[in-house]
Amino acid sequence: MGEIFVKVENVDVLYKDKPALHDVNIDVSKDAIYSFIGPSGCGKTTLLRSINRMNDEIPGFRLYGKIFVDGNSVYEMKKQKEIRLLRKGIGMIFQRPNLLPKTVMQNMFFPYEEHYHVNKRELAELAGEKLRIVGLADELKGRLHSPAQKLSGGQQQRLCIARALMLDTKLLLLDEPCSSLDPISTYQIEGLLTELKASRTIVIVTHNMEQSRRISDFTAFFHEGRIIEKGSAMQIFSHPTEELTQRYIRGDI
């Protein structure tokens, strides 16, 4: 195991007084894919969104313990500015593509909306480069100024990834990014993630066990707010040690 990029230490989460996570510990290695699996409601999304403090707005959300991203203690950040900088360094992809009702390019520029000093030409070049990474540069030739929401679901989701990459993204958090996509688009995104991990750390929540098995280096199995088993994905999918994990992988829970 190499360097650790995200470290989750003794984390407990409550919504109002309802516990959602209990004593969670995870070390996410740099430049690898870590997947969270487990039945619905077990806390996967809660943990993922805690990493970039996206739960702050939820009334009654409380987190105990520590989370470190690239060595910085996320929940010891006090200033809003620090939190925003943290978020800018982390790309987040949701279940459904969330492009704005604007053109492809306007969506790509959105992360720089408030940066008035940035030169439009440089920005367009940067956007072109990111679109190439996600394989959309050729596909979308001539459509860069047409509405982003006219693209196919898979293209939209890849565009969301490209948009997240516009900032200097070292970490990508994906919450069931393929759950609304067809198999071919899913396959493309999986290939893309495997390429991206060469220089980025990726955490993905998935309900698709096959997907988890195909792309992840490490896996954690969640059940009712606890981590039951974690480690190398190969190990967990071929020789799970806990009975709950075995049952989940067999499809019994």
Binding site: M54, L85, F94, F110, R163
Partner: peptide, 27 residues
């Protein structure tokens, strides 16, 4: 207006006020 767009904008590092102005009100 969908929560996922609001969240998406925050996740890109926008402030809440910027998000309301640039995402929610236009939508």
């Amino acid at each position: 207006t969908p929560q996922s767009h609001f969240d998406g904008s925050l996740a890109l590092g926008a402030t809440k006020w910027q998000t309301i102005r640039k995402v929610s009100i236009p939508a």
